[in-house]
Write a protein that binds this DNA or RNA. Structure first.
Lengths: 147, 147
DNA sequence: GTTGATTTAATTGTACACAATCTAATTGTA
DNA sequence: TACAATTAGATTGTGTACAATTAAATCAAC
């Protein structure tokens, strides 16, 4: 057993369960996000905007590991729904500033119960979750370094 | 510190590093996959087909956590490149059988060096990788149960 | 102070990813 | 045997992702 092609077995990859797990978890957000009319990408964008109140597309992209090609349509959608405002910075016209609206702030209250519901859906102990979290950020950290 | 909205902080989510990590790793495959003209999705599909020699779209989808909406265009693309053949099962005309071609088998040799290269890109010890692998499959396993 | 380089977003094109729907083949059951 | 239910795959529509390019604003060096 174990030929020279074992390295190409899907069960020997670390990337694959990562990829699959991410997709499956995002899929499981849908029942909780549908009622507040947000997609997963819109939700994580709103999370950062809720925290920052005001942020440039560049800074948002750095936090979410997303570029303007992805964020531009997402933010236009969020603006269209009335949750954010998009306006150029006076200091530097290149920067687009995303601002939270009153409706956007209101939405935060409704989103508040989602993390707990999702937490129950992932069947890991407190300790295992912490371990997983730490390993993932270790990888992300190493990626940020050699940017 | 720590208000009632802490649960909505992006840094308190487990899903987010999973999502980001998955994307970043897939992105890092590109330099290695470009030379053999495969995308990441095409690559993991080929991995299973290399192992199985012959598999239905349904079975492939179960292994990859992908449905026909995603796989149909991917497999048509792989057929167009000459790596697989698509043909209906004689036993049950509903089943589409994916078969490896000689060119598809040839490609396996060139892909062989990719896992090792990617392994170096993820800065985890042997033990940490094993831990991460185990945690991810624990989640995927729990998902498969309540299918 | 002007010009070349850099930076920020937007745009374009390609490729997923998935929900929802559709069609054809098969199965189960009365 | 009919016929309802199920199953497999394809199709359609929406929403990401990202590479590559573009355009405008700013910065840097002289």
């Amino acid at each position: 057993m174990g030929d020279k092609y074992d390295c190409l077995k899907i069960s020997n990859q670390l990337c694959f369960p990562l990829y699959a797990c991410s997709k499956e978890i995002v899929k499981r957000y849908k029942p909780y996000l549908d009622p507040i009319d947000l997609t997963y990408t819109q939700y994580i964008a709103m999370m950062v905007i809720w925290e920052e109140k005001e942020i440039t597309v560049k800074a948002l992209g750095d936090k979410l590991f997303l570029d303007s090609g992805t964020l531009t349509p997402v933010l236009k959608k969020l603006e269209q729904k009335g949750y954010v405002k998009r306006s150029r910075s006076k200091d530097d016209e290149r920067n687009l500033i995303i601002t939270l609206t009153d409706e956007g702030l209101e939405l935060k209250k409704q989103a508040c119960s989602i993390p707990a519901k999702m937490g129950k859906c992932v069947q890991l102990s407190e300790e295992e979750s912490a371990q997983l979290y730490s390993l993932l950020y270790k990888i992300l950290g190493s990626f940020s370094q050699d940017e």
